[in-house]
Amino acid sequence: MPHEIVNETEAKMNKAVDHTLHEFANIHTGKATPAMVENIPVEAYGSSMRIKDCAAISTPDSRMIVIQPWDKGVIQAVSKGIQIANIGLNPVVDGGLVRVPLPEMSRERRQEFVKVAHRYAEEGKVAVRKARHDGLDTLKKAKLPEDESKRIEKEIQAVTDKFTATIVTHLEEKEKELLEVT
């Protein structure tokens, strides 16, 4: 029966892995995905909002992102937001749409993205280890019998190893995807 401390620790580690995978999704692989632009802030209606909150985002093919604002008045703001984000994309306003063609990726650019993926993976592993540390601290404060404490400590380590391995597996997949020339 998993202990409450193990469950809390596992939940924190799961959040860390989810965050890492979300960061991986935002890395430009040469294939268009809505995640590349959906969280870019746009100045619209007198406040800052994300593109996904004011427009529909689609990818008609692997080299193009099409953004269709629900209000035509924010088209220029969406285009400007993408340019300000400085993610290497050049939006083109086309009537009621903003088209964002993806440039071909050079070998150097691919290597840069691999380094970024490694950094995100390391940050994810650090977050998992911090969750383990927090769980072990909570365990020490719980003042449980020594045999139960040791068992829970082993469970926490097993969960830590599982989540770390998950991050490494996804990093390898992302690296393969980034280095793959289409």
Rank of each mutant, 00 (worst) to 15 (best):
E38A: 05
T59N: 00
I84M: 04
N26A: 11
A16P: 03
L89K: 01
N14V: 14
A55T: 04
A117F: 06
R99E: 09
L21D: 04
L21T: 11
A117N: 02
R109C: 07
Q83C: 14
K80D: 14
R63K: 13
P101F: 12
A25H: 00
L102S: 05
M64L: 15
G73E: 15
A77K: 00
T33Q: 11
I51G: 08
A35K: 01
S58F: 09
L21I: 15
I67H: 09
E112K: 02
T20A: 04
E112S: 07
M105E: 09
E43D: 15
D53I: 10
P91C: 07
A77H: 01
K15Q: 11
E38P: 07
E112V: 02
R63V: 13
I65G: 07
V116S: 13
I27Y: 10
H28Q: 13
R109M: 14
L102M: 08
V92Y: 05
S62W: 13
Y45R: 00
M49W: 11
K80S: 15
A35Y: 01
A32K: 07
D94Y: 04
V17K: 04
A35Q: 11
K80Q: 15
A35F: 08
N86I: 12
D61L: 15
P34E: 07
K52Y: 12
I40S: 00
T33P: 12
F113D: 01
E38M: 11
A32P: 05
M36W: 12
F113W: 13
I40E: 00
E104F: 06
A32G: 06
I65K: 10
I27M: 03
M36D: 03
N90A: 14
M49C: 12
E23S: 11
E104V: 11
V42Q: 12
G30P: 01
G95H: 08
A117T: 13
N39E: 10
G88M: 04
V74F: 06
M49L: 13
V100M: 08
R109D: 14
E112F: 02
